[in-house]
Computed example of a mutant assay.
Amino acid sequence: MTETAWKLTAAEGELQILTGVGGPAAKMGHRLTIAMASWRADVQWRGKQPVSAELVVDVDSLQVVKGEGGVTPLTGPEKGVVRSNALKALDVKKYPQITFSAEDIDKTATGYRLTGTVEIHGTSRPQIVDLAVEDSGGVWVMSADVPVVQTQFGVKPYSLFVGSLKVADEVNLKFTARHPK
């Protein structure tokens, strides 16, 4: 049986983190869209079946794309402060990468279910990712939407005003990528 490998990077797709806000002053905060600008995914195939997948994200590539809601629009300098706070919360110097390794991949009606381990902030936990795969002519379009609870990985969500305004503990990771057939 033929073995092949796919290598995907941010050039073929995007990896975003969507945050919410919480606390009594939540209306003052921004729901953020954060892009991870440097990542790679390696998928090993045996015949027509993927047998392993690994995603490696460079935490320092975090970029604040936009902020929705809040009392005032999110400015460029504020995006810099948000980025700095996020990198500090993730302790980027000590934990420069986030990884996901799928040890088991099963075909589903809409794509594949990847069962594996995610490591964030030095903490590893089991993770299931349902990856949708769509045939779009000459390319495969893959997408996944995965909730992640920051405190389960030892990450303390950023807060202000003694916790009356804070980033929601659960964030949502959105992944999309395209690969030619």
Rank of each mutant, 00 (worst) to 15 (best):
I120M: 06
V118P: 08
Y158F: 11
G13P: 00
A102H: 06
F175I: 13
A41R: 04
Q150I: 04
A35T: 08
G76Q: 10
T115Q: 15
K27S: 14
P147M: 09
S38Y: 03
Q44K: 15
G138H: 11
L165T: 08
A5E: 13
V64H: 05
S101E: 11
R40F: 07
P77H: 06
L131E: 07
G80Q: 05
A41D: 03
E103Q: 15
Q150K: 07
V155L: 09
G67Q: 07
T19W: 00
L173R: 00
L15E: 01
P96V: 08
V162W: 01
S164H: 03
V171N: 02
I17M: 15
P24V: 12
V118Y: 03
L160W: 05
Q152N: 15
V118I: 15
P50T: 12
P157E: 08
T2E: 14
V92L: 04
A102V: 00
T9W: 00
K174E: 09
S136E: 10
V21F: 03
G22M: 14
T117W: 06
R46H: 12
A132L: 11
A25C: 04
A37N: 14
V51C: 11
E54G: 15
S164F: 01
T151Y: 05
L8R: 07
V56T: 13
K107D: 07
S52R: 14
P96N: 10
S136N: 12
Y158H: 11
A25H: 04
V171T: 05
A37Q: 14
V57P: 00
R46S: 13
L62V: 06
P126R: 14
V82E: 06
Y112R: 07
A144R: 07
K181T: 04
V57Y: 00
P126A: 15
V65C: 02
V167C: 04
T72W: 10
P77K: 09
G163L: 02
L114R: 07
S38E: 13
V133L: 12
T33F: 05
S52P: 00
V146P: 08
I34A: 00
E12P: 01
A89L: 05
P180H: 15
K27N: 12
Y95S: 09
S101N: 14
A10W: 00
G67K: 10
R83Y: 00
G137Y: 04
A53C: 09
S101W: 03
P157Q: 10
G69P: 12
V64Q: 03
G29K: 05
K88M: 02
E170I: 08
L173V: 13
L32Y: 02
L87Q: 03
E119T: 15
V71E: 12
G47C: 08
L90K: 02
W39M: 06
V129L: 03
K66D: 09
T9E: 00
A11M: 07
E103N: 15
G70R: 01
I98A: 05
S84D: 11
I120R: 06
V141T: 13
I120L: 12
D106F: 11
S164T: 15
V43H: 08
G122V: 02
L8P: 02
K66E: 11
P73I: 05
L114P: 13
M1K: 14
M28K: 10
Q16L: 14
